[in-house]
């Protein structure tokens, strides 16, 4: 059974153009010019019930617009979509009982109230009875480790704590599908990990499907099995995360710091040295060409390591590579 079915979805925004300054404002007032922005251009995909699907792409790729259409917030310009059997923009209220949403940049918790008060309010909004709500809160607060935060006004929580409360709130009514738009935006590494673990656990225990947008490839690796990459409103890649990793997330960036000074002509076979400082080195290599343990042993032999950071290439680079591989003729 599929939980999301999308067919040739399009969304075009009309935007008033306005040149800067007083003259521009006057001109816009009397003779407005419009520009069309095609945020989503013929998107088609489907998602199975209980699937963990990642929806990634750079800023402005159309991820958020798609999610907003799927929740019934936006009406599409054309195309069809069904979410849990409902057409979102026609049956918004019915659909809302069965899905949970988190918009990373738009908090849903009441800012001045402790999270528990918003939870109780949500219980009323979703028509749960009070006993059930309380039981559910107890369960979720354990899963998200927020027991000690519930009584504190939300404005006094850190961003990471608040985000855990946000996701917990979106699960209050036992949705079958969770739509997360940039849930990890602005969080530090530890907070990101924390929130990923909790989402993963809930997805497994309650068989909740998760559609997650992000521009951080890390979210994807940690949470999703399948991935769709969008750019300029279109799907540019669709596959299992393991395949994506194998094919495209093979280039790793490594930064190391040593206790003693390193020699300026530091080098390892098959590794691209990006920068050599007096105490640190920044390098890049391809894990399919140069084995990881070989690089690591070289690095540790070179001196006493005090710090190491390994990171994936930025998503823009991955997308560029996907384009290159898909259309070899375009390579310049």
């Amino acid at each position: 059974m599929s939980s999301i079915e999308v067919n040739n979805l399009q969304k075009t925004f009309q935007t008033k153009r306005k040149a800067a300054g007083m003259r521009g404002s006057l001109r816009a007032l009397f003779k407005p010019e419009y520009t069309s922005i095609e945020a989503v251009r013929g998107l088609s995909f489907h998602m199975e019930a209980g699937e963990l699907l990642g929806f990634i792409g750079p800023n402005g790729a159309g991820k958020s617009t798609t999610i907003k259409i799927l929740t019934g917030i936006l009406h599409p310009s054309s195309g069809d979509a069904k979410v849990l059997g409902f057409v979102p923009w026609k049956e918004r209220q019915k659909l809302a009982y069965h899905i949970g949403t988190v918009f990373g940049q738009r908090p849903q918790l009441w800012y001045h109230l402790p999270a528990i008060d918003t939870f109780m309010l949500f219980g009323k909004i979703y028509e749960l009875d009070d006993r059930e709500t309380k039981k559910r809160i107890a369960f979720l607060s354990e899963a998200f480790e927020i027991q000690d935060l519930l009584e504190t006004p939300v404005r006094k929580l850190s961003l990471g704590q608040r985000m855990r409360c946000e996701v917990a709130a979106s699960l209050l009514h036992r949705p079958k599908l969770l739509l997360l738009d940039e849930p990890s935006i602005g969080l530090d590494v530890v907070a990101k990990q924390h929130i990923r673990d909790a989402i993963k656990r809930m997805a497994q225990e309650e068989n909740v499907g998760v559609l997650l947008t992000s521009h951080d490839a890390g979210d994807l690796e940690a949470l999703c099995r399948r991935v769709i990459i969008v750019n300029h409103g279109q799907i540019v890649y669709e596959d299992k995360v393991s395949n994506l990793k194998r094919k495209f997330l093979t280039r790793k960036m490594v930064e190391v710091r040593y206790a003693e000074e390193v020699s300026p002509n530091f080098s390892i076979d098959g590794v691209e040295i990006l920068k050599v400082g007096s105490y640190g080195v920044k390098l890049r290599f391809d894990t399919t060409k140069t084995p990881v343990d070989q690089v690591m042993s070289h690095l540790s032999q070179a001196g006493e390591l005090v710090d190491i950071t390994v990171s994936d290439p930025p998503l823009e680079e991955v997308i560029a590579k996907i384009y290159q591989d898909a259309q070899p003729g375009m390579r310049t």
Binding site: K68, I73, T101
Partner: peptide, 10 residues
Amino acid sequence: RLDYYLSLPR
């Protein structure tokens, strides 16, 4: 800010 209200069933 209507996003919030539109994502709830009321």
